[in-house]
Nucleic acid binder design. Structure first.
Lengths: 227, 227
DNA sequence: GATGATTTGTACGTATGTATA
DNA sequence: ATATACATACGTACAAATCAT
């Protein structure tokens, strides 16, 4: 069969968009690890498209910082040096702090209630030790914070940073008491925001972001063999 | 002549990289204005390459936020709403503040000297009213700040934001006393950094970034006609 | 509203550069 | 070290969508 048949009946957009989403998903969920090769031909075959959309997707993912591309060499899932990883965690802390400060100052009544509700609802998950569900809550909680800051651009920066950090967060997932500690830190942030104490909210959000570079050594950049 | 001859004898990289640089330059220097159409075929003809590298460059520029791309519609130079523009200026102020704070705490002796030297050298430009030269100095000054923060990722975020803001800064270029005011603000920042006063440096850097949305109305996003 | 012109989206071929036996 | 295999870079052809008349 020469011409590829469409892989889905309903197209969600262009092929390139699908590829960007698909590949990004593989990367942030950890199905592909840093330094894994992203061979254009293989990806094209795997998703049953031609190489052209794959190339464009890889180019876009490169600009997003999720993949590394050097001329004439296979693209690879982005690796980072230990120092760069540290800089991303620090940036994350600073950005979260900004969002928390702004949120404390700007959130509407309704937004404050939503944040409090989301937080309260997570108490049960902590008691049950529901790691997976808590992780979903955690993302919603932080999204409410970003949104509550009422600054679109900062929201994009923090989301982008969070995505690039995703492949390196996996390690810290199963620390003892992680859930209850996280919950208590959220508690501090929420309390500060509810009383509109911007400085306290910022400080709490900053210290909530783990600065420790917990990533496995294997994920850290070993200089690639390719020029 | 069917096959394109190389436009340059020495290739600086791949064609796509050249296109990204070239188009980005047109955008940030204001030769192309927000909402200007970026026709793939025209660009390909203009730079004497095929559409393929142009497409990939546009995809990358899209991910960088310099151009907008919707399926089946011409790419256009990125427009922003007034509120988004404001959010970028605010983000810029926050990021500059972080850099200044970190720089005050972390710059080496040598880096502090360089910053001071760069600043002192600009005094002459202010006296002479050398707008163009001062603008070059200004970029170097801020780059020293970003670099002095010793945080690569934050450096990338602030550089990226600065680039996206470029097409909208043009308006504020010729304000009265702009140079001397800028110089005095730099003075405050430098002084704070030299005495390692992080908070003062951050505050000074924050207020140094003009929050006013000075862009001409024509540059602001009017909803595009294309789906 | 239908039709032709223009432009984007995707497939594929060939050349060139890199890695490997 | 030379040659072979293989992956990418770019050009080009065609299909599909959009816009203008």
């Amino acid at each position: 069969m020469k011409h590829a048949k469409r892989r889905e009946v309903v197209r969600t957009g262009t092929t390139v968009e699908e590829m960007v989403r698909a590949i990004a998903h593989l990367i942030v969920t950890g199905e592909l690890h840093p330094a894994d090769k992203l061979d254009e031909t293989s990806l094209a075959a795997r998703f049953d498209v031609s190489r052209t959309p794959v190339r464009e997707a890889l180019r876009q993912l490169g600009a997003m910082g999720l993949v590394e591309r050097k001329p004439n060499c296979s693209a690879v899932v982005a690796r980072v040096t230990e120092s760069y990883l540290h800089s991303m965690f620090e940036a994350m802390a600073e950005l979260e702090a900004i969002c928390a400060r702004l949120a404390a100052a700007r959130m509407t009544i309704r937004e404050r209630s939503s944040l409090e509700a989301e937080h309260r609802a997570s108490f049960r998950l902590v008691q049950e030790g529901a790691e997976e569900a808590y992780s979903v809550h955690n993302i919603r909680f932080h999204s409410l914070l970003y949104f509550g800051a009422h600054n679109e651009h900062i929201g994009e920066l923090v989301t982008q940073t969070r995505m690039r950090l995703a492949p390196f967060r996996r390690a810290q997932f199963h620390l003892p008491e992680r859930l209850s500690r996280s919950f208590q830190e959220h508690e501090t942030i929420v309390a500060a925001i509810l009383r509109a104490d911007a400085d306290a909210a910022g400080a709490a959000a900053y210290s909530h972001v783990s600065i420790v570079s917990t990533a496995a050594a294997a994920l850290i950049a070993n200089p690639s063999t390719c020029p």
